[in-house]
Design a binder for these strands. Structure first.
Lengths: 225, 225
DNA sequence: TAGATTGTTAATCGATTAACAATC
DNA sequence: TAGATTGTTAATCGATTAACAATC
């Protein structure tokens, strides 16, 4: 696979995950797809589909379209989920529990290798995946041992603590070498710029939805005093 | 409050939810904030902050800035969460259970008034919030009764079924008058255009994060064969 | 009044799309 | 070869930002 050196926008990466999901669905029916069909499902233009994909290389066949299996493989590789990526979950409340026990929710390509909490009532308890909830205070040691014993370098975490603890917990993670955080809390994390944070704020999304629900008369907010 | 008639972009609404979250945090320290401070926390420019807010009216005081409490109240109203908005949850697996039992996760302004599943093992069971899991097949009746008995018009749902059921379940909801769906599944829903869907795909977000984690050397993917 | 910060206009930047030569 | 669809360029559109008059 040939990858171009290029500035890649967040938008393109977001759509890449959508293409992957659509292609996995489409593969049940067909073995090929073209940019027009893909665009229709994506609610966009075929030009955008082709441009997005061409960011990463030439994957199509002129006159025919794209081989679905091939495209799935390529996008899978671009997103780095052709291998298994190790993740730790921090916080074992309702959210952390759901994430660790619902196998489907993280999707393929990710493996939970540690679950942490600061609550003594939870530490030591058996969680899903044959994992025991560990003391968050031992996270540095855990990461170090993983590196030494198995040569596994952990740098990705899912943050699922209560929002009051989010900032301080995140800082602790960063101190211990975590550089990628999926933030499931409502807290806006303020961390070093080279730490990549992706926010997953359910309440914010619900607020968005509610805005559009209220202002759904196509076009939209009336002038009112 | 004066609301301007205007095309509002999804981006602006997204940021509105962020401003709200930041302002709620800031209110603990201060009673006023200006666009420069707000921009710094948001990682953007003061111009964007002022432009975003001015989409909805004139809320600042020249020479001073914005009153935090006032701005919170205004954004709260714009997002429609100054009142309580009724939501139903469809699917009472790990995800649905988490959503209905974790009070914080939906945030203020939303109330779960019904929980549904199609699984006979789950129907009739007591869930959180003193709600009993109802048969999804009775959802039409439930919505009709709510309308007749309490004049509550339900049109917002959180879809938390397994992805194989997502499309068919969503269609059922729409048939019964739901026009706003927070989609917690990985499935890309294909519904009538006037149904507003907001996707909340954890695995997709994790894929995104993983991409940036892998390609985090500031600038970024190398040319390679 | 002087200093500060808003709201808004105009300039810039980046993302989307139309169009088409390349090519299967 | 004729028909189709890609990959890419150039045009368009929309979003961000700089700059500044308005005004507290």
């Amino acid at each position: 696979m040939r990858l171009k050196k290029l500035e890649i926008s967040e938008r393109v990466v977001q759509r890449l995950t959508e293409y992957l999901s659509i292609l996995k669905e489409a593969r049940k029916q067909d073995s090929e797809i073209n940019s027009i069909e893909l665009a229709k499902i994506m609610n966009t233009t075929s030009a955008q589909v082709r441009k997005d994909l061409s960011t990463f290389g030439e994957f199509g066949v002129r006159g025919k379209g794209y081989d679905i299996d091939n495209l799935i493989e390529i996008i899978t590789r671009i997103l780095g989920i052709d291998k298994t990526n190790d993740v730790i979950i921090v916080g074992h409340g309702k959210m952390g529990e759901m994430l660790s026990s619902n196998l489907d929710v993280l999707g393929e390509g990710f493996k939970i290798i540690g679950i942490f909490d600061k609550d003594n009532d939870k530490i030591g308890k058996m969680a899903a995946n044959n994992l025991v909830v560990q003391d968050i205070r031992n996270i540095g040691e855990f990461i170090k041992n993983m590196k030494n014993d198995s040569n596994i370098k952990i740098n990705m975490a899912i943050l699922a603590v209560v929002k009051e603890q989010a900032q301080i917990a995140a800082e602790g993670l960063v101190k211990n070498g975590i550089s990628a955080i999926l933030n499931m809390t409502t807290c806006k994390l303020e961390l070093d710029k080279n730490v990549k944070v992706v926010d997953m704020d359910i309440s914010a999304k619900l607020q968005e939805l509610n805005f559009w629900r209220i202002n759904n008369t196509e076009n939209n907010i009336d002038e009112k005093i």
